[in-house]
């Protein structure tokens, strides 16, 4: 039973990692390094929290949807609202995706069009997100960088799968179905579905083949008359989309919904670690995200683990994903080989 609870919470904790790692998968498979996953998640989390509040909070709902926009304008921006309140969570999700894609496009512009350093661009995006989210949150809500807590239609509600309660009494399968598989919100299921979907897109479509080729040998793709720039922009766009969903999950899909400063809490880097641990494969990403989610669940539940001879401190559990990633990178347990053209801007020959 305890194990089932742990696995249940592992699945919840794995969801944002899974989405962000898949985001990194698309970007890096096309040859664009992305250490800005963290920033895009954080910005997405804030946008989701803020816009779900605007759409669903009674103090913001009137005849108009009032956005205190700043810019020296004394009157807030008024958008006719109607009855959007019930859609708040989806408006939040949409805002998260849009904001995350905007950051992704800045990254794409810097790395693809201007051929700038992709790593530096990622670092800048992380700082930009961690500064602007709190800055704007304080400006809009004056709650020390938090958004108001959310409830009702402002958050993703859990879904009880059909027959879950009836099946609960069946031995073994019942508790697993009722306690582990059922009872999550839609983003959890969407993230799980995104794994085979990503695999299919990357390995079974023409777009995916070209996307992987452009990450290994952009010159060859260019010679075949296919635009390297367009392919890479699309890959980074998909990364923005997935990071936005991941961020929205953080602020709208957990047990205490609402945005708080730095709420992504290095998850973007754990996702990056998961991606490398998975050796840039979709199936591996699922395994790595679940493993890292499980480690986090253990770390949350137990302060330290006594295994008889000595005690494993909780900090070790927290650091384990990073240690495992370094071990994998070092090539001691199978070698993690990144896409060949990763990090290199493509310069067309003349």
């Amino acid at each position: 039973m305890e194990l089932l609870q742990l696995m249940d919470s592992a699945l919840r904790l794995a969801t944002p990692l899974l989405l962000a790692a898949l985001a990194g998968l698309f970007s890096e498979r096309s040859g664009i390094f992305d250490i800005g996953l963290e920033g895009k998640m954080l910005a997405g989390a804030f946008a989701a929290g803020a816009f779900a509040t605007f759409a669903g909070d009674p103090s913001y709902i009137g005849e108009y949807w009032s956005v205190p926009i700043g810019l020296g304008l004394t009157d807030p921006l008024k958008i006719p609202l109607g009855s959007w309140g019930v859609w708040s969570v989806w408006i939040g999700l949409g805002a998260a995706i849009i904001v995350s894609i905007i950051l992704a496009m800045i990254h794409a512009f810097a790395s693809i069009t201007l051929r700038g350093n992709q790593l530096i661009s990622g670092v800048a995006i992380n700082f930009f997100a961690s500064g602007t989210t709190v800055l704007v949150a304080k400006q809009w809500f004056a709650m020390g960088g938090n958004t108001p807590s959310l409830d009702g239609s402002q958050r993703f509600s859990t879904i009880t799968l059909p027959g879950a309660e009836a099946a609960a009494d069946i031995p073994v399968i019942g508790p697993i179905y009722e306690g582990l598989i059922s009872g999550h919100n839609i983003i959890v299921y969407a993230a799980l579905a995104a794994v085979p979907l990503s695999w299919w897109v990357l390995f079974r479509t023409r777009f995916g083949l070209r996307l992987r080729a452009v990450g290994e040998n952009p010159g060859a793709v260019d010679t075949a008359g296919i635009s390297v720039v367009k392919l890479r922009y699309s890959a980074v766009l998909i990364a923005g989309l997935l990071c936005g969903i991941s961020g929205a999950y953080l602020s709208l899909g957990t047990s205490a919904p609402g945005f708080s400063p730095e709420m992504s809490a290095q998850r973007g880097f754990i996702a990056l670690a998961a991606l490398i641990f998975a050796k840039w494969s979709p199936k591996g990403v699922l395994g790595a995200a679940l493993l890292f989610g499980f480690l986090e669940a253990i770390g949350n539940k137990y302060q330290s683990i006594d295994i008889g001879a000595f005690v494993i401190p909780v900090q070790f559990m927290q650091a384990l994903p990073y240690i495992l990633t370094v071990v994998i990178l070092a090539g001691f347990i199978g070698k993690a080989i990144p896409p060949k053209a990763g990090g290199e801007p493509y310069v067309k020959e003349r």
């Binding site: 201007l114 350093n117 530096i120 661009s121 800048a124 992380n126 700082f127």
Partner: peptide, 10 residues
């Protein structure tokens, strides 16, 4: 962030 962006990646 803006300094890193404009003197670095951009």
């Amino acid at each position: 962030a803006l300094v890193i962006m404009f003197t670095g990646s951009l």
